[in-house]
């Protein structure tokens, strides 16, 4: 009986090193892109702490702000910011590959599909910053 398994069939198998992704730049980029998700999750946790502190009142919130000024937290946020930017850029650049749009029998150039993502990114970021900073 044929059954789908997530594992390759038994028998001859080429052994791949656990560190296969260190050999080539493109592989390393792939793993770094995948690892960016850890930093995304870490910032969601920070935001949950922030929501908790906001709900706790002004003194709880100033404790949270103090926590964010800790050099270790700042360093982790610098690294997280770089990873999140890497995620954003690779995500936008993937969109032309995920969406093959054809107009008049010709494929729409990749830049025309990726471009609007960047425009939306700038506009949304500016809108969010305006809402937060307007005081």
């Amino acid at each position: 009986m044929l059954r789908y398994t997530e594992y390759p069939p038994r028998g001859y198998r080429v052994r791949v090193s656990t560190y296969w992704w260190t050999g080539r730049r493109a592989y390393l980029r792939f793993i770094l892109r995948e690892l960016s998700s850890i930093f995304v999750a870490w910032f969601v946790l920070e935001t949950l702490f922030q929501i908790n502190a906001l709900a706790g009142g002004p003194s709880a919130y100033s404790d949270f702000e103090q926590f964010l000024r800790n050099p270790v937290v700042i360093a982790s946020n610098v690294i997280s910011f770089l990873f999140v930017l890497f995620h954003a850029v690779t995500w936008f650049n993937l969109s032309p590959k995920a969406m093959a749009v054809r107009l008049g029998g010709k494929r729409v150039p990749a830049a025309l599909i990726a471009g609007p993502n960047y425009v939306a990114w700038v506009l949304i970021s500016a809108g969010v910053a305006w809402l937060i900073l307007r005081g």
Binding site: E46, E65, A88, W91, A120, I124, S125, G135
Partner: peptide
């Protein structure tokens, strides 16, 4: 994560703690 996380992370994680921009008051954010 691509559209919204960078601006939040930049403001709350870097710009406000490092004093690059004035941090909003508690009641504004609430």
């Amino acid at each position: 994560a691509a559209l919204l996380v960078p601006v939040h992370l930049f403001l709350f994680g870097l710009a406000f703690p490092l004093g690059w921009l004035p941090a909003p008051a508690h009641d504004t954010l609430l």
